[in-house]
Structures are given as C-alpha cells and as structure tokens.
Amino acid sequence: MSEKMKEVPGIYLRDAELKAEDAITFKWRPNAKYAWSGGIAYSRYLAELKNGRIIGRACRECGRILVPPRMFCDTCFRATDEWVYVKDTGTINTYSVSYLDADANRIKEPILVAVIDLDGASEGIGILHYVDPKVDPKDLHIGMKLKAVWKPEKERIGSVTDIAYFEPLKEG
C-alpha cells in the first residue's frame, strides 16, 4: 500500500465471530450432477485398460506417440494416424509423498505419486499415477524403473484406476 494511504479497508472476521450464536451465515451445497462422455480417444484408452493394456496414438508428422491417446496432435494440429500399444513399464520423471487428502485433511499413511514416462511412449509423455504404498519413500528416486500392478480382471471397470499402482521393476 502507498504510504500516502492511512487506512487499509477490510474487517477481519475471525472464526469465533463466524460461529457466534447470532451470526448470520448461509450454508449451501450445489447439487448439480454431470455425465461426461469419454470421446473417441479416451473411450478406447479406458476400454484397453480394462483389457490390461495401455494404448496411445501416433502422429506421423512429428513422430510422437501420445499417451493418453488423442485424436489430434496439438503441435502439428492434424489428426493423429494410428493406435499403438505401449508397455506397462516406465521411468519416474518426478514423484512426491502426500500427507494430504483431496480436501487437504492430514493423513497418516502417505500417498506416493509420480509422473511416469511409459516405455514405448515418446520421451516426456508421462502419466500421473500412484506408486506402491508399501515402498519406503526414501527408496524412490527420479529415473527409477517401475511396472504397473493391475487390478484383477474382474475388478476392472475401464478406468485409470484399473492399474492399482506402479511398483519398482524387479531386475531380470
């Protein structure tokens, strides 16, 4: 604020005042429901996940293999050309260890998450997923090889969570 201004407007409303018996507040929960359709590329992607496979789309112009698949290439701005299966193994691009849930509540057992560059997809084309919660966070490092752990076939629903998490790839 400018030193020429003497007063900063605004009245701090503390928790106690908000919760006071005579305080006026209005509570509301929006009740809108949505149905999102998957479109061409994601519908196939999710159907393949149900089959235990990861599929991408290739752009012949720039040579990139995109996962999750897209029907158009955003750099070349043209339709992608073909479906390509990629591996369910990959490399940690970056990772973190979350002590917060989606509402910012603290949780005891941390969630391990990583951006994973899948083998067979183009360099830098990563996906976000969980890492095996049994892994000690200290043992994780960028560049580490991981492999998908799939849910049993009967439990798969055609979702990214059909992969339960990724675990460190055992050599050999």
């Binding site: 305080a23 209005f26 359709s37 519908s43």
Partner: peptide, 22 residues
C-alpha cells in the same frame, strides 16, 4: 444421450458458508 457412450458420472460438489457482508 451421453449415458449411451463410454461415460463417467460425478458432481462438482463442495460445501459453502456465505456471510452477508457489512
């Protein structure tokens, strides 16, 4: 009808407490 295609259902839920101002 989006429900005939591969789809997901969900909401945009959050709770709110509004105060009426000065």
């Amino acid at each position: 009808n989006p429900l005939k295609l591969h789809h997901l259902v969900g909401d945009m839920e959050a709770d709110y407490i509004y105060t009426p101002g000065v």
